[in-house]
Computed example of a mutant assay.
Amino acid sequence: MKITALLASAAMALGLASAAVADDKTKVGFVYVGPVGDGGWTYEHDQGRLAVEEAFGDKVETVYVESVAEGPDSERVMTQMALEGADLIFTTSFGYMDPTINVAKKFPNVKFEHATGYKRADNVSTYSARFYEGRAVQGTIAGHMTKSNVIGYIGSFPIPEVIRGINAAYIHAKKVNPDVEFKIVWAFTWFDPAKEADAAKVLIEQGADVILQHTDSTAPQAAAQAAGNVVTFGQASDMAEYGPFPRVSSIIDNWAPYYIARTKAVMDGTWTSVDTWDGIAPGMVGIGEISDAVPAEVKAEALALKEAIASGEYHPFTGPLKKQDGSDWLAAGAVADDGTLAGMNFFVEGLTGDIPQ
Rank of each mutant, 00 (worst) to 15 (best):
P244R: 04
I204H: 04
A129T: 06
S237Q: 09
R135I: 06
T232E: 08
I166Y: 08
E181W: 07
Q213T: 12
H214L: 10
A227L: 07
Q206L: 13
A200D: 04
G207Q: 03
D238N: 14
A197Q: 06
T215N: 14
D209F: 10
T146N: 06
P193V: 03
R164E: 07
A194W: 14
A142K: 00
N229I: 15
W190R: 02
V162K: 05
R247N: 14
G243A: 14
G139P: 01
K174P: 03
S148M: 11
A187R: 01
N149I: 03
G139R: 00
S125F: 04
P220L: 06
A187K: 02
I154Y: 12
Y132K: 05
G165Q: 07
E161C: 10
A222N: 11
I154M: 15
D179C: 09
V180E: 05
D238L: 06
E196G: 07
R262T: 13
A236T: 13
T140S: 10
I184F: 12
G207T: 07
A169D: 11
Q213S: 15
V185F: 11
D122K: 15
K174Y: 08
D209C: 11
T140H: 08
D192R: 02
E205N: 15
V231P: 00
Y170D: 02
S249H: 01
Q213E: 15
S217W: 04
N254K: 12
A226F: 09
L212N: 02
A136K: 01
I251D: 14
A136C: 13
Q138D: 13
R164N: 14
A224I: 05
R247C: 14
W186E: 01
G143D: 09
G207D: 06
A136P: 03
Y258Q: 13
K175N: 14
G139I: 03
P244G: 08
Y153Q: 06
A136M: 08
K147Q: 15
S128D: 11
A223Q: 01
F157W: 15
A187L: 09
Q221K: 08
I251Y: 13
I159K: 09
I163S: 01
A240Y: 10
P244E: 04
T218M: 15
A199H: 02
N177Q: 09
I251E: 15
W190A: 05
A197G: 13
N123L: 10
F131R: 00
E133N: 09
E241A: 15
K174N: 11
L203A: 09
Q206A: 14
F131V: 03
N123R: 06
A222Q: 11
Y127C: 10
I171A: 02
S148W: 07
A224H: 02
D216L: 03
T189W: 14
I184N: 03
N123Y: 07
Q235K: 07
R262M: 15
D238G: 10
S148D: 08
M239I: 01
V231N: 00
A129F: 12
S148A: 12
T215K: 08
K264P: 01
P244I: 00
I211D: 03
A219L: 09
D192G: 06
F188K: 08
N254Q: 12
T126C: 13
